[in-house]
């Protein structure tokens, strides 16, 4: 399984739980106070409630349903309020996915963690990601059809505002995707970010208008 982008580093704000979907797999992403990024299956192992509904406590994630707490890093359950005296089964653990932060984006792999990352620009500034109500393959075909250079099956590049802009497509569900953008530039990025947001919104309107 390969790594796919699911968020930008900036998306993982302090004490926040980010919700992502990759290839139909719902994921809860959260950054601990020490910087550790956790990518977990978005369901509490106890009763299946989405962990993205939960609370990022800084070093642990708390499920909303019964207050069970899971440690950053290991994913191990470390507190079950209904039974404060314990014991907590050693196998009780949030299901973790391999996660890497690179080039301002956060990449997750659903399988093993030996897969390679896409080749990314050295100085990259993330653009606003754009969810699209069309499958990843359809958007890849549309970008290729528009003449963008393909750097991989779900990785395209174009020149905008004098900078190289990389577009990486996250296959979300079977019918939706998210386009993550990286601008290869070190200067003031906001004008380009605004330009790209407008451009991508306009492209999205066209893509979604087609049946």
């Amino acid at each position: 399984m390969s790594y796919h982008p699911v968020a930008s580093s900036r998306d993982l704000a302090g004490r926040h739980v980010f919700q992502a979907c990759l290839l139909g797999q719902d994921i809860a992403l959260w950054r601990a106070d020490d910087g550790t990024v956790n990518a977990w299956e978005n369901r509490c192992p106890h009763r299946g409630v989405r962990l993205s509904l939960g609370v990022n406590l800084g070093d642990r994630l708390m499920c909303r349903y019964h207050g069970w707490r899971y440690d950053s890093g290991s994913g191990a359950c470390s507190h079950i309020p209904a039974h404060p005296e314990g014991p907590i089964p050693a196998t009780l653990c949030a299901r973790r996915f391999p996660v890497i932060e690179a080039g301002g984006l956060v990449f997750v792999a659903l399988g093993d963690d030996t897969a390679a990352l896409p080749t990314l620009p050295e100085t990259a500034i993330p653009l606003r990601a754009l969810p699209v109500g069309r499958p990843a393959e359809a958007i890849a075909a549309a970008l290729a059809g528009a003449g963008l250079a393909a750097a991989g099956p779900l990785h395209f590049a174009e020149t905008q505002g004098g900078a190289t802009v990389h577009l990486l497509i996250q296959p979300a569900s079977g019918t939706t995707c998210v386009i993550h953008g990286l601008a290869d530039m070190s200067a003031e990025a906001l004008p380009l970010q605004r330009h790209m947001s407008r451009l991508m919104e306009s492209r999205r309107r066209a893509w979604e208008a087609r049946p």
């Binding site: 998306d11 704000a13 004490r15 926040h16 919700q19 979907c21 969810p131 939706t176 998210v178």
Partner: peptide, 13 residues
């Protein structure tokens, strides 16, 4: 679903 609006989800927090 709010999954497609990450900036909104941070603002809710």
């Amino acid at each position: 679903p709010l999954i497609d609006y990450p900036a909104i989800r941070r603002w809710l927090d």
